[in-house]
C-alpha cells in the first residue's frame, strides 16, 4: 500500500520490497528537493496533502500501473511536512518481468502522481519569503 510519511524515505528498503525472483527488472525513481529553481535559492520545503484523497489516489494509480504493465511489485512513498534540501520527497519503485514495462510504469506513475495526487509543496526561499507552489497560478 502506498505510504504518506513524515519520516525520511529509506530507498534501499523500497528496493528490497519490490525485488523478486519473478522480476527481471527493477526501476527506482527518487524525487529529491532541489536548492535552486529558476535561479531562486530554496532553504527548505514543506509538503501538505489532503490525506484521505491522496492515499486513495495513490492506491488507484498503483493498482492501475500493476494491471497495465503486469508489475510484480510496486511501492510508492511520499514525504509530508518539512523536508531538507537534497532529501528524497517521493519514491516510486517497480519490478516487472522485463525492463520496458518497468521503465514505462515508473515514468507513468511519477508523471501521474505529480498531475493528480492532492499534495502541495511550499518553497521557503533564501530571501525569507515563502510560497505554495501552484502550477498555472501566477504569484
Amino acid at each position: 500500500m502506498p505510504r504518506l510519511t513524515f519520516e525520511p524515505i529509506d530507498s534501499a528498503c523500497l528496493l528490497t520490497e519490490v525485488q523478486s525472483a519473478r522480476a527481471g527488472a527493477v526501476v527506482l525513481f527518487l524525487g529529491t528537493t532541489r536548492e535552486y529553481t529558476d535561479g531562486r535559492r530554496t532553504v527548505s520545503l514543506e509538503y501538505d496533502c489532503y490525506r484521505d484523497m491522496a492515499q486513495q489516489k495513490l492506491e488507484q494509480l498503483q493498482a492501475e500501473a500493476c494491471q497495465k504493465w503486469s508489475l510484480v511489485h510496486c511501492a510508492i512513498v511520499h514525504r509530508l511536512g518539512d523536508v531538507d534540501l537534497g532529501e528524497v520527497s517521493v519514491a516510486v519503485a517497480v519490478s516487472a518481468g522485463h525492463r520496458e514495462a518497468a521503465f514505462a510504469a515508473g515514468k507513468w506513475l511519477i508523471d501521474t502522481i505529480k498531475e493528480v495526487v492532492p499534495i502541495w509543496k511550499k518553497e521557503n526561499w533564501h530571501d525569507g519569503t515563502s510560497e505554495w507552489v501552484h502550477p498555472g497560478i501566477s504569484e
Binding site: Y47, H78, V90, I113, K114, V117, P118, K121, H134
Partner: peptide
C-alpha cells in the same frame, strides 16, 4: 458530501 477545494497540485 465531503467537498474540497484543490488548487493545482505540486507534489513530487
Amino acid at each position: 458530501s465531503e467537498i474540497a477545494c484543490i488548487p493545482p497540485v505540486s507534489g513530487g
